[in-house]
Design a protein around this nucleic acid. Sequence first.
RNA 1: GGGCUCGUAGUGAAGUGGUUAUCACGCCUCCCUGUCACGGAGGAGAUCGCCGGUUCAAGUCCGGUCGGGCCCGCCA
Length: 587
Amino acid sequence: MRVLSSEVSARVGEIVTVKGWVDSRRDHGGLIFIDVRDHTGVTQLVIQPEAAEAFAAAEQLRDEFVISATGSLTPRDPKLVNPNLLSGSVEVKVNTLSILNRSEPLPIQISGDAMASEELRLKYRYLDLRRPKMQQTLRRRAAYYQQIRAFMERLDFTEVTTPILASSSPEGARDFLVPSRVHPGSFYALPQAPQQFKQLLMVGGLPRYYQIATCFRDEDPRADRLYGDFYQLDLEMAFVETGEEVRTTIEPLIIELVTDFAGKQLLSTDIPRIAYSEAMERYGSDKPDLRFGMELIDLSDELRDSGFGVFGKAIADGGTVKAICVKGGASLSRSQIDGFTDIAKAEGAGGLAYLSYEAGQVKSPIAKFLSEVELTIIAAKTGAVDGDAVFFGADQRPVVNKVLGRLRSEFAEHFQLKDPDVIALCWIVDFPFYETDAKTGKLDFGHNPFSMPLGGLEALASDDKTTIIADQYDMVMNGYEICSGGVRNHNPEVLYAVFAALGYDAAYVDSRFGAMISAFKYGAPPHAGCAFGLDRMFMILQGETNIREVVAFPKNGSGIDAMMSSPSEVDDQQLDELSLKIVDKSA
RNA sequence: GGGCUCGUAGUGAAGUGGUUAUCACGCCUCCCUGUCACGGAGGAGAUCGCCGGUUCAAGUCCGGUCGGGCCCGCCA
């Protein structure tokens, strides 16, 4: 009977068998110690020359050999206890030892503090996964899913799996296409989300649906975004007409995950609802990190007639001047400020003006352009005191918000204001239904066309379409978007009107979204829902900043799985069956 | 598609234009009966990612290229 490392302490005096990998071997010539590792920890084996066969086997052992050892579990002499091991007060005096499998020298080191590059870790992921931290992550993730499912079941949501072979939808991310053999020239698409299926389930009479759904998107990845496939907690509720009902339904799950599951401190259980426009004005972002303040202060009125040309001109051109007060910012060196200036420029700023408050003085390249009154007002409105620095953005409003929003996050990072033990949640609500494309000046959908415009047909008739609000909402966790949802537009008349506002006629809508629109014509109940990015939320709850750390087999930044060598070329015969021809392999 | 950045034994790192490229872990041989990242003695192992250039001389400087990472675009 196999005994795990976590169990050995309770088995003193028994004959036990332990199995696992050789974590380390300490050969004293006449006495050999082996640390054998399983998924619960490490146990020390002692092999003495008296057990001749076992001793001979032990002499051959190398790192990561797979072994089975049987012997008596004995307490260690108090002087020999290893407090660093859970099993450190006992050891196995081995009688028989068998080598279940051997291992070549490893291409990456599993133990020790020098960790291999991510490139190699992914190529040899099966070795990387043996590391205790990765082992723990895998099991934590299973527990995470279990807790989510338990919550959803408790609330009478029904899990339904939806097709992986689906059809291409013209909106959104790039699709992964799968060629049809039976229907040459036709393709399935892997779903970017089960969006249409879940809405059709609502039409199909299901009151509450959920699914831990695999989603596929062919878009470039980021540290917080996987390439290819990822998982969403997808849910939808029938006869729900407000986003608030969805939010209050699902909120307790997230609070539970933050506190019970992750053991983190929730900044507030009273989760704020912040309008999109307000979030942009106060935080310069639609996914603000609320663990710290540093809000954007609008100084346009105060600096309208400023002697500093950059400020005055920005306002005269219809723009705005805003500022953030960085506590302790006066300690920043010139080169550090240069670094932040580069970031500001990358976000579209012309430069980065600032005031530094030191020893009762204002130090700044621009101070000489500002009047005493202006300096006093700036200090008063931003709350800047000795030791602080105030940074300005002066440009068109969207640019200023974007620049200062980014700087707010960067300064928080620099001054370590992002407490890893605290989780701050908020809902961003009231997204604009339509947006004007900054480049083309053309009106387009802000988020997705299937959400309900607040005010319905009446609102859609408005002259300024950009004022129309969608009943749509995101949940934000520590500056990451973890959920997006909306009240769906289940009314064919309104759906046609939504597209008509952009110049698309009914025939266009019918051709693109046929199944949805015809389903809605047969008594679709009002419905609303949302979807959480499970990989990303888990990453945050685990305190990680790289999403690949919490996924067993992620692809790299180029969409390549170095371990499995995917994607890969296929046989000509396979291509023939699919009526496909590769035109240019180098392109 | 663009910007930044990294690429040196199996792994992780050091390396000021100038001798035979340094260290740790790992690997091989030998010694060692209480170690626990055991210790000791010795050894093997590097086209400094690749191509080109500057130079008397390039791991080091320059250009290109390939690969990794981060970011922008993109991700309804």
